[in-house]
Design a binder for these strands. Structure first.
Lengths: 203, 203
DNA sequence: CTAGAATGTGAAGCAAGATTCCGATTCAGC
DNA sequence: GCTGAATCGGAATCTTGCTTCACATTCTAG
């Protein structure tokens, strides 16, 4: 079926779907620089970050940025992807294992608050997660399950209010993002929300 | 000091600070059209509303819009002003008189939720109120007092949690705005927040 | 009814950013 | 160290939306 190994394939390495061809070493390095810079800039400026600033911060020209990504949104998506994995990892490593579901849930919210306070882009993304842009909803799907798992455990233990659906949860995070983004004291806001989540506080 | 009354003042009516000169009848009418259109468009599109669309919806050219307002932001301010008065009037007429401070507070929040769900511009403004743009903070100053008055009464009656400062309150409204704006079910969100506001639910 | 000021128009001018383009540079295999 | 393909750079281009302007139209006082 394939040509004898002795004759080097005249075509570039057959482009497998996930690795069309090995990137040149410098290109790999630069791509990483762009992503690192983008993480910084999005964290500072949120969705409004400028492509130019990302490139400059990476020590590269805009053209290079556009060689690696089709447009600015793609960069944002890549950065978001990274953040989601980070947060997911935190929840799975630091919260899910906790035998006390309430303490674990509190830790999830605290983490969300501090991350959002420090990363405007992340706060923007969480706010946008309620919208209808599919790219922005992706992380909602990715993070809801582990958090709901904790909620369910809490409800089983009788410490979390019984009515509470997926969407409500994201609504709360969304509110938190609005407060955290603004430099407001999100801990106080969180205190109220947590009190509200606790079982029995119902009106 | 002034010239005899018999000689009509050759100058246009001395421009008093608040009424430089009487506007022409059609100008008054058009200004009102612009504001009405602006209210609609800002309600639909929020801060992103286009000057052009406002003018078109008013049945006028953009130039006319700019004859009446120095820039788009001035239009937004005027619209905001109107909304703030409306909300303030609602609180003073429908909530402050209520002898039950908790019921009154709930009504304030419900009103906020439904207004924000129907008026994207208002939701945006509330979110922005935590920022540092003075024009956007103005309504915070205007609405905080009456609401805090209710909070204080509630605290005195022992139905509202004791620690609760001005800023916290706006944080909660800000969160509500994020949820309401997104078409999410803000009533559920509110249920949690209200449970959290209630005295005794503390962790 | 008429003149002249006040208004209304919307095309043209600008500004800010995103994206493209193509010559200049750098890598990787020989 | 050579050569051609892959990359880089950043000025030029395009897009979008705000704002201005010179001229046309409409009011209002006389």
């Amino acid at each position: 079926m394939s040509s004898p190994a002795t004759t080097p394939d005249p075509l570039p390495p057959p482009s497998t779907p996930d690795c069309p061809r090995p990137l040149r070493a410098d290109a790999v390095r630069n791509r990483a620089c762009i992503l690192a810079a983008a993480r910084e800039v999005f964290a500072e400026r949120g969705t409004e970050a400028h492509a130019e600033e990302i490139a400059r911060r990476a020590g590269l020209g805009v053209g290079t940025l556009y060689r690696h990504f089709p447009d600015k949104e793609a960069v944002a998506r890549a950065v978001l992807e990274h953040k989601v994995e980070e947060v997911k990892a935190f929840i799975e490593a630091e919260c899910l294992p906790d035998p006390d579901p309430w303490a674990a849930l509190v830790r999830v919210f605290r983490n969300a608050g501090s991350e959002q306070a420090e990363d405007r882009g992340w706060a923007d993304a969480v706010s946008a997660a309620l919208g209808d842009d599919p790219a922005m909803c992706l992380h909602r799907e990715r993070l809801t399950p582990p958090v709901m798992e904790l909620v369910r455990r809490g409800q089983a233990a009788g410490v979390v209010r019984d009515d509470l659906r997926d969407e409500d949860l994201f609504g709360l995070f969304c509110g938190l993002s609005a407060v955290a983004r603004s430099g407001q004291d999100w801990e106080r806001y969180l205190a109220v929300v947590l009190a509200g989540l606790r079982a029995g506080g119902d009106r």
